[in-house]
Design a protein around this nucleic acid. Structure first.
Length: 450
DNA sequence: TACTTTTTAGG
DNA sequence: CTAAAAAGT
């Protein structure tokens, strides 16, 4: 009687406690493990975006690591998981615990449909499970810094060993679905590729992370958002490697970035509606721009033709490779909310549609942070100046020229203010759609009468 | 994880 | 007068 391991947000074999539990149960029963992946209906549609294309690639890599035995079935989990369990007469089904509230409800439905077969949820996609940490008063953490302190004090378990010589069951599936067409140039997918990228980062860039992570013109970040989103790597693995990398400022900063990720998961766990609604109202509803002019401005932002080089470079990088440097995500998001006066939800939706690492907790709560609507957010009056940010973090203009071909003829940091140059310098680059100083003043005025 | 304006220190 | 620090948005 083989046990079932249901892969969900854990497309990996290493450091996977739920898989370890499934393998142990199978060994006790002297039987095999069924590696199951459920394709939700509606995921592979005509509108499938770069995330689904990447998921298909990652599934293909997982299938290869399993010698072609990955069992992919289409349908709702509450239908598919019990069907497979009945088919192979599994005594238990193992899965990594859900984190989002909607995930927990789905698990309830699966557990109920399984009847007598237990659904064993082991571990979490996070180093510390969302909802675990509480203040001394027993309330959820609302502020990052005390959360991080508690998170560091709490600690986490060591990486789980990768199961060796697993007897994978030979069960027929529907096969890994075809990769939907996408214009996005996707990164290499799969657990092995993620491990290689991480090892390269630790060896080459971690020492300078504190200094270089805000520089979109350098390869100073780890690009782990994608593997973390799909569970190709577990944050515990990264934390264990960081512990072995000393105690420099760079290591502490990287660990702190992981803490932000866990904080956002924790906040969403406690406030499920934060995925859609502002946690705080900072400006009156009637202050947001709406109508055809706002729609035009949004399109200019989304397509990277605002006339602000750093904003346009970021938005074009997003469309080209499904990823944007974090510093530029903050600048472009600030521009939509505080220069174009549009609700963060609209921008978050666009990011989710294009980002390969698009993750509801991270995307929505980082947008709330920029918009100033989060619990522990940047104050609304903290407005990013796209020119100053460009001069500071892309001093030679390399990043802008990489993504905005119309500006390639302008050398150095002057590329951040093309309007100060003769019109012939960049004839094809669009003029500014708003004046930043005026737009900023208008945003602060709206904030003042909230 | 901003930026601008005002105030103050220092030569 | 300049630059740094502080205050305010």
């Amino acid at each position: 009687m083989p046990t079932v391991h249901w892969f969900r947000r854990d497309l990996r074999l290493a450091d996977n406690p739920a898989l370890v539990a499934a393998v142990e149960a199978a060994r006790r029963a002297d039987d095999a493990v069924v590696p199951l992946f459920v394709v939700d209906p509606g995921l592979w549609t005509a509108a499938a975006g770069p995330r689904v294309a990447y998921l298909a690639r990652s599934l293909r890599a997982l299938d290869a690591a399993l010698d072609g035995r990955l069992v992919v079935r289409h349908g709702r989990p509450q239908d598919v998981v019990p069907a497979v369990a009945r088919e192979v007469e599994a005594p238990t089904v193992h899965v990594t615990a859900a984190t989002e509230p909607y995930g927990r409800r789905r698990d309830d439905a699966v557990a109920q449909a399984l009847g007598d077969v237990p659904l064993v949820a082991t571990g979490s996609p996070y180093a510390v499970a969302p909802g675990r940490l509480r203040t001394q008063q027993g309330s959820p953490y609302e502020v990052f810094t005390p959360f991080r302190r508690a998170w560091l004090d709490h600690g986490w378990s060591a990486p789980a060993p990768r199961p060796r010589s697993v007897p994978w069951a030979d069960v027929r599936g529907d096969g890994v679905p075809d990769e939907p067409a996408t214009t996005v140039d996707l990164p290499a997918a799969g657990e092995a590729a993620a491990r290689r990228r991480w090892a390269t980062f630790v060896a080459d860039a971690l020492a300078d992370y504190d200094e270089d992570r805000d520089r979109p013109d350098l390869d100073g970040t780890s690009s782990m958002s994608v593997p973390l989103k799909y569970g190709e790597l577990h944050p515990r693995t990264l934390l264990a490697d960081l512990a072995g990398a000393g105690s420099s400022a760079s290591v502490a900063t990287y660990r702190s970035e992981l803490a932000w990720r866990e904080f956002h998961a924790d906040v969403l766990w406690h406030h499920p509606d934060a995925a859609r609604r502002s946690l705080r109202t900072v400006v009156p509803e009637d202050a947001w721009a709406t109508g055809p002019a706002a729609d035009d401005a949004f399109a200019a932002w989304a397509e990277g033709r605002t006339g602000y080089p750093l904003v346009d470079a970021g938005m074009r990088q997003l469309r080209a490779i499904g990823w944007m440097h974090n510093r530029v995500r903050m600048v472009t998001a600030s521009f939509l909310v505080k220069d174009l006066h549009q609700r963060w939800q609209r921008g978050a939706e666009h990011f989710l549609a294009w980002l390969v690492d698009g993750d509801v907790p991270q995307n929505q709560l980082n947008w709330q942070w920029v918009a100033g609507t989060g619990r522990d957010a940047a104050p609304y009056f903290r407005v990013f100046n796209p020119v100053l940010q460009g001069r500071r973090f892309d001093p030679d203009g390399t990043y802008v020229r990489q993504w905005v071909p119309e500006l390639r003829g302008i050398p150095g940091g002057a590329v951040h203010e093309p309007w100060k140059l003769p019109a012939a310098a960049a004839p094809d680059y669009p003029p500014r759609i708003v004046d930043h100083a005026q737009a900023r003043a208008a945003a602060l005025e709206a904030y003042g009468r909230r």
